[in-house]
Write a protein that binds this DNA or RNA. Structure first.
Length: 670
RNA sequence: GCUGUUGUAGCUCAGUGGUAGAGCACGUCCUUGGUAAGGACGAGGUCGAGGGUUCAAAUCCCUCCAACAGCUCCA
């Protein structure tokens, strides 16, 4: 969702390169750290244990990963977590046996023979059960490279290593989960079972790892979202559709106000556009029908629907007629793009085409139409159109996750239309804005990824000079940020280079939030122009940018970042007044009115609970300020201040407290 | 979408074929207190939905829905 609206064409070319081509060299493998070596050996020990229990298992890949290891395999029995205990017990035995890990260099012929007999990746020869994955892996080893295997006990595996010396080292291991995976990560290949485990050098480290996981769970935004009543997802409304409850709405609104203020300072114009648009619009932009699978189904116009029903068309037919485009549009698009971007198969005769509406999957076509709604002069540029624009995308159900991966979300989106000479300055402006926002939110653990084109590839459109200029601009802009950045050739969108902000959250997961993308293609597809100082028509350049991805994802990441303890300016409830007894009710009412008048989000707890219970509840609700009011305070006309994280701050005058807190909110202090 | 796990009160969960449970939250009452839980009583459930097995199903079986973990994906 953080890619605001990369237009389509050539999706197949944009697919990630399959894992298999990123083969590590033997030298690279030898550089494994000690802990990776240990975990790699654990994977072999786990395979050994699984073979002892289920001798038919066929193993594929078993690498160390961050925090642990896994092994992929295929066999009759389906592993469930109930089997872990059994496997772990067997692994413990193998560790006690203190098997030596022995390296053996073998010839290609030997390797193949061992795989054919089922010996490779097995405890013994397994007639009639050749090691199919190992055979495939052997074929993938380049000619001339040393083929090697490792043996521990009876288990011989095709493996470049390295390993620990003896299995006795692998004592502190725990299996963590089981899942399905695909051979070589390829959806079309065999489905395998994958068992994950983790291992450490000492028992203490292993335990600490699980404590860390527990801590992370406590900050999970889905858990906190429920506890603090920030949002709700309802089965009857639909998966991945967020209902913002009052507390969450405050959080979101405060963020939005903050971003709006910054946008105004930077010369953006805010716009509003509807949630749907005609199919024809997305056909021009090229998003439909090429991204049909990740969009909500089109909404057919009533008249058209009546007509096709009259003709007796089935749903499939209706969808096909919606998905087609006219020969004329195809011609136009191909001409504008200067190459074949729309194939003939989607062309239908005009009288068979249906029109309809789409829930917008991105905001750019709408913004483009605003730009194009009047003639533009170079004097107006850059035109910066910003919108908190809600878009809808059909994410696969297994990919949905709380607020961070949803089907309807609001981007802090903007599109800049500028001259080619202005690109560098505008990119820089976008980045500095992101930086201001992230710094204010105290999110400093982030890195920047500059996606450049792969010069050898033909998948990128546009001329090389434009590209060089845009890439230089992006690179230079990233360098001024003072945060680590990487250049990733081949990672550009096909229509222009991009800069992504990747935030690391408390659990160490990385989230792509902001993105800035230079685009030379959509201006062509929509035939945009402006009048230059030479009184001739010129093509503007577009910059797509979303600082924070989406309000949903941002809030999700922020909830975990703050563990629910928001800074006062973001806190749904900023102050809670706690009375000690009914005797001070009138005084409390008065203080409450004063704070409210000052614009603070304040509540009053006059329940019959004891003060200890009231404090406890306020702490659990993570309210930053508690004002304890009793007869002492009423007599002195002051308030006892308690801060959720700093504890009892003593008595102050109401004026003093008000001045402090309102300043804290105004300045958006952390 | 794929594999696995889970679904019982608003929340967290117990309940292995025989009359639906606990704690918290909620309501009423008593208590009027000094920095993380005062007490009593009460209300609250078609056990995710639908089908099946059984004299009998929250419990066993099937299908669907949803959540979670991982995989794949993310314009």
């Amino acid at each position: 969702m953080s890619e605001p609206c990369t237009p389509p064409i050539l999706r197949q070319n944009a697919r990630p390169i399959p894992m298999s081509t990123e083969r590590k060299t033997l030298d690279q493998r030898a550089q494994m750290s000690d802990i990776e070596r240990l975990r790699h050996s654990c994977a072999h020990i786990m395979a050994t244990a699984i073979l002892r229990l289920w001798p038919d298992a066929q193993f594929a890949y078993g690498p160390p990963i961050e925090n642990g290891f896994y092994y992929d395999f295929q066999m009759q029995h389906r592993i469930t977590p109930d089997d872990f205990e059994k496997i772990e017990a067997e692994m413990k035995k193998i560790s006690k046996e203190n098997q030596k890990f022995e390296w053996k260099g073998i010839s290609r012929e030997e390797a193949k023979a061992m795989a054919e007999s089922g010996r490779l990746g097995g405890l013994s020869e397994r007639p009639g059960n050749p090691s199919i994955f190992k055979l495939d892996l052997i074929d993938k080893i380049p000619e001339g490279e040393q083929i090697s295997c490792f043996q521990n006990g009876d288990f011989i595996d095709l493996c470049a290593g390295p390993h620990v010396g003896y299995s006795g080292k692998c004592k502190h291991v725990k299996l963590t989960s089981v899942s399905a995976s695909f051979y070589m990560g390829d959806e079309t290949k065999a489905s395998l079972q994958r068992v994950y485990g983790t291992a450490f050098e000492s028992k203490e480290e292993l335990e600490a790892h699980f404590v860390r996981l527990e801590e992370a769970k406590k900050r999970d935004h889905r858990k906190l979202g429920k506890e603090l009543k920030l949002f709700h997802i309802d089965e009857d409304v639909g998966q991945g559709l967020i209902l913002w409850t009052p507390n969450g709405a405050i959080l979101r609104q405060e963020l939005q106000n903050f971003i709006s203020e910054e946008l105004r300072k930077q010369g953006y114009s805010q716009v509003f556009t509807p949630h749907i648009g005609k199919l024809a619009l997305y056909k021009t932009s090229g998003h439909f029908p090429y991204y049909k699978d990740s969009q909500f189904a089109a909404i057919v116009e009533n008249d058209d629907l009546a007509k096709v029903i009259h003709e007796g068309c089935g749903c499939g037919e209706v969808m096909a007629r919606l998905g087609g485009i006219s020969a004329k549009l195809r011609q136009q698009l191909n001409d504008r793009a200067g190459k074949e971007v729309v194939s003939e198969e989607n062309v239908l005769p005009d009288d068979q085409l249906l029109d309809g509406f789409m829930l917008k999957p991105m905001n750019c076509p709408h913004h483009i139409k605003i730009f194009d709604s009047q003639p533009r002069s170079y004097r107006e540029l850059p035109v910066r159109l910003a919108e908190f624009g809600t878009v809808y995308r059909w994410e696969q159900s297994g990919e949905l996750n709380g607020l961070t991966r949803v089907r309807g979300f609001t981007q802090d989106d903007a599109h800049l239309f500028c001259t080619e000479d202005q690109v560098a300055a505008e990119v820089l402006g976008c980045l500095s804005l992101v930086k201001i926002v992230l710094n204010t939110l105290g999110m400093t653990d982030y890195r920047v990824r500059v996606g450049l084109r792969d010069p050898d590839s033909s998948k990128f459109t546009g001329n090389p000079e434009q590209w060089d200029k845009a890439e230089d601009a992006c690179r230079a802009a990233a360098a001024t940020l003072g945060v680590p950045f990487t250049e990733e050739p081949g990672e550009a969108a096909f229509y222009g280079p991009k800069i992504d902000f990747v935030i690391k959250d408390v659990i160490g997961r990385e989230w792509q939030l902001g993105t800035v993308q230079v685009d030379y293609v959509l201006p062509v597809r929509f035939d945009l122009s402006y009048i230059g100082s030479d009184n001739k028509s010129h093509r503007p350049v577009m910059i797509h940018r979303a600082h924070l991805g989406s309000m949903e994802r941002l809030c999700g990441v922020l909830i975990e970042h703050f563990a629910g303890h928001f800074p006062t300016w973001l806190a749904p409830e900023q102050v809670r007044i706690l009375t000690i007894s009914e005797k001070v009710d009138a005084f409390a009412d008065e203080i409450f009115a004063q704070l409210k008048a000052a614009g603070l989000r304040v509540t009053l707890n006059q329940d019959a609970d004891k003060i200890g219970a009231k404090i406890r509840n306020a702490q659990l609700d993570k309210v930053p300020y508690m004002l304890v009011l009793g007869e002492k305070e009423a007599a002195a006309g002051g308030v006892s201040v308690r801060h959720a994280k700093r504890g009892d701050l003593g008595v102050r005058s109401i004026a003093e407290f008000l001045a402090e807190v309102t300043a804290e909110v105004r300045e958006r202090k952390m």
